[in-house]
Design a protein around this nucleic acid. Sequence first.
DNA 1: GCTACCCCTG
DNA 2: CAGGGGTAGC
Length: 688
Amino acid sequence: MPDHDSTALLSRQTKRRRVDIGVKRTVGTASAFFAKARATFFSAMNPQGSEQDVEYSVVQHADGEKSNVLRKLLKRANSYEDAMMPFPGATIISQLLKNNMNKNGGTEPSFQASGLSSTGSEVHQEDVCSNSSRDSPQECLSPFGRPTMSQFDVDRLCDEHLRAKRARVENIIRGMSHSPSVALRGNENEREIAPQSVSPRESYRENKRKQKLPQQQQQSFQQLVSARKEQKREERRQLKQQLEDMQKQLRQLQEKFYQIYDSTDSENDEDGNLSEDSMRSETMDARAGDSVGRSDNEMCELDPGQFIDRARALIREQEVAENKPKREGPKEKEQGPNTFHPEGKHLAETLKQELNTAMSQVVDTVVKVFSSKPSRQLPQVFPPLQIPQARFAVNGENHNFHTANQRLQCFGDVIIPNPLDTFGSVPMPGATDQTEALPLVVRKNSSDQSASAPPAGGRPPTRHHSPPESLDLTRETTSLRTKMSSHHMNHHPCSPAHPPSAAEGLSLSLIKSECGDLQDMSEISPYSGSLSPNHLKKAKLMFFYTRYPSSNMLKTYFSDVKFNRCITSQLIKWFSNFREFYYIQMEKYARQAINDGVTSTEELSITRDCELYRALNMHYNKANDFEVPERFLEVAQITLREFFNAIIAGKDVDPSWKKAIYKVICKLDSEVPEIFKSPNCLQELLHE
DNA sequence: GCTACCCCTG
DNA sequence: CAGGGGTAGC
């Protein structure tokens, strides 16, 4: 029995292990029946494997089904041994014993057969079976079959042989008519509580059988019936006692509940009644479900110890269930504002206060966290506010914009001084501009911001008080833009490996440019690794000698520049742009000559007076402070004639018709004077 | 795949 | 003049 009690509390896996242990432990004490059943079980589970293997597999891998089967067998064996133990759930035990005995067959092999075949009452038997169960005759046996097998009954039956057996059968039948019919009415929980309702037909049959019984059998039958009734009464009494105890507990809890909340209104009474009613019904359900209403299979699953544990667990569940609604009741009532009790109101107020306090704390915490990182968070939260100033400074076009673009002036005036006010009262002049420039500022690192911050962080409007010379900078603006673009090309996209130095370089160039130090770029040069406007000018002058400079040549002639991929690309791009303009002009004048009626290339010549030359000179030598080499005039004339001939020949229909011209022109590059190799070549050249 | 170049747009 | 897309050669 202790084994069974503990087994009910163990987990499934533990059960498996215990099952295995139980197998070995109970082998010695089990009856031959169990040994046989065990062998049968194992052979059924694994017909090919040895017994040891099967046991191992059961322990290690047996699923719930296997363990259940094994457990059933064990329980049956043990319950068979413990069958005579007085026990409140005797009906369950009886049923288990009935099943064991019936399925065991060999225990009392002649029980059924003799009882049915020798009495000549097959008709009655079959009739009963047909009414109680459609299953095998064994199923017709009453759950009370086992208690009838007390020593007294057995002795009597042994003496009276056939008639006694008949009496037992009749007793079983009788018992079935009084006890809940497991086979047919397993789920009718009310049956145990409500008075037994016997159908007229059954009652008639019963009476009919009673009349047929001999007096002796009537006597023994009456004894058995009375014993059965006594047992049933005891069972019912105990269940009733349980119910009363639980109701008592419920009342106590209800009293406590009302004491706490001083409930006086009827609504709460209704709640209490409801919960009590529900509890009562649940109690009944639990009781009926455990003792009566369980299905046959479930009953077979439960051994006596498990049954007790199950009942206790259900009682505990009931207790929990009846406690729950009471504790949750007031909380639910708080949701209805008009149904507050004084204490409920107080509780509600307290809860509200607590919620407010908690919310306040949360808000404070969030604000605290937010304000504790102003340097990091605020710039990211309000990035657009620094866009205008940064954009102007970085692009170097702030002067022009400040004089020409009133909208951007508004940005400088309004937004920059107090960024936080922007979100308050100051209207936004152009939100689109802000969002457009936003990525530029966000991408900048702290050093960039510090570089651009001085004009912005302080008082941007002071730039409208800048010296006049800084406002009108047509030439300087171009130079500055070139310088900026040089920095941009050099540092921003092309030097990701050195962001700090890039930022420093950019900052330095910005400061220099804003100081108006633009006249003497040669003093600023070399720009340690960057291209200056003078570099651009120098490149333009070099174009007069070479249209297709190699990268090595560029490195040679721009020795003051720290070359990298970006510098090289930028220089190449410069010359590409030079050529582009050059060829455009050539094509343009070639077509113009054709339109003017020129028929021969002989008529095409380039002099320093011609329009084409002026255009080219204006583009590459705007200041006209450099004497264009004569060779460039020759090459330009050759190029113009190439275009003229190609267009005359109609080669311009080919999309790549210019490639042939490029091929020719690229061979006409001449040597660039050595003086261009000097970093100060511009000074030397322009001073001449 | 990288590079240079052309072509186009802004 | 810068920048981007497309393309061809290496």
